[in-house]
């Protein structure tokens, strides 16, 4: 069975599933319970599940993420919401020194089965403090699972996978994708975390993307097809666990690789993909790996400046053309 849902509705459906089917789940964050969430992700959940299952927190990200960890260690399965990914930085200690490390440091005796939901990326006119794409910081941290759903279906499936996982998972959605609509397989079995996906087959070049850049890459592939260039698009979906096999298999077919993300270039997760390709796909590569990313500047607010920073389909098209020598 599949339903046509907007991305944000798919998130709501996954959270409904989590609270409905798992008694150990609790959901908390800012404005999530009574108000139904700043973007409507938790609409109706408080009414249905009540204050013991879903509640509002003060503006205390570090405090409530630490609380999520303690609760996860002792028997609950918390899902905590960070309103904008930018606000995860005030709670970075929780991600890097606490949530990610406890299982390892206890020799596997503690577990931290929790989910942190957030949304990221630019939107028109949003300033530097509301536009970050911080996935690389999380992916750099051993012990965290990191997923970035690019479609309504994945917003549903990946969030359920995250809830079912016994490891801590960061799910970073994209605010710009919230209004997009698509089929959601509401009766699909819950998948384990991980797994990239070829979302458009092609023969000349592999474009690896995630989050908002998947639709940009698909858009680019459509335009390139008109020029006679066949681009294969891989939606990476999860940065951890990283399914590099799917990327390598694609590069073995195409011989060329372009990686596209909205985050800044230097140290972005595209650098990791490029490095792996250099190590594992060296013999297959017929051209240098190309990266599409925001240049290394904080996000400006003015749309004319944003247009010079935010990578779009045209940037993917240009990178592919360079890679195939056109």
């Amino acid at each position: 069975m599949s339903e046509s849902l907007r991305y944000i509705q798919a998130v709501n459906a996954a959270l409904t599933w989590a609270l409905d089917t798992r008694e150990d789940t609790v959901y908390f964050g800012e404005d999530v319970a009574l108000p139904g969430g700043p973007f409507g992700a938790t609409k109706g959940l408080h009414k249905r599940f009540g204050s013991t299952r879903i509640f509002d927190t003060p503006i205390s990200e570090s405090g409530f993420l630490g609380m999520a960890l303690g609760a996860a260690m002792t028997g609950l399965r918390p899902i905590a919401e960070i309103m904008y990914a930018d606000f995860s930085f005030v709670a970075m200690d929780q991600f890097v020194n606490q949530i990610s490390t406890i299982r390892y440091a206890s020799n596997g005796r503690w577990r931290a089965p929790l989910v942190v939901r957030m949304q990221q990326g630019y939107s028109p006119g949003a300033c530097a403090q509301h536009s970050h794409s911080p996935e690389a910081y999380f992916a750099h941290t051993p012990g965290l699972r990191v997923g970035l759903p690019a479609t309504p279906d994945d917003a549903y499936q990946m969030l359920r996978s995250a809830v079912a996982s016994d490891d801590p998972v960061v799910i970073a959605e994209a605010r710009m994708l919230y209004p997009t609509r698509g089929p959601v397989r509401t009766d699909a079995p819950v998948e384990p975390v991980g797994g990239a996906r070829v979302v458009r087959p092609g023969t000349d070049v592999t474009v690896v993307a995630w989050s908002r850049m998947v639709s940009a890459a698909l858009d680019a592939a459509g335009r390139l097809a008109e020029e006679g260039i066949s681009a294969e698009v891989v939606d990476l979906r999860w940065l951890n666990p990283l399914d590099f096999d799917t990327v390598a298999a694609s590069v073995a077919r195409t011989g060329r690789l372009v990686v596209a993300h909205e985050a800044n270039l230097t140290g972005g997760f595209g650098a990791e993909i490029a490095a792996r390709a250099a190590t594992e796909c060296f013999a297959d590569l017929r051209a240098p790996v190309a990266r599409v990313a925001a240049p290394d500047v904080p996000m400006p607010a003015a749309p004319t400046l944003q247009a010079a920073v935010v990578p779009e389909a045209a940037d993917v098209v240009a990178a592919v053309r360079r890679t195939v020598g056109r």
């Binding site: 006119g125 300033c127 530097a128 403090q129 509301h130 400006p300 607010a301 003015a302 004319t304 400046l305």
Partner: peptide
Amino acid sequence: CGGRAASPY
């Protein structure tokens, strides 16, 4: 701020 900051910053 040359349009870099806008209303909130």
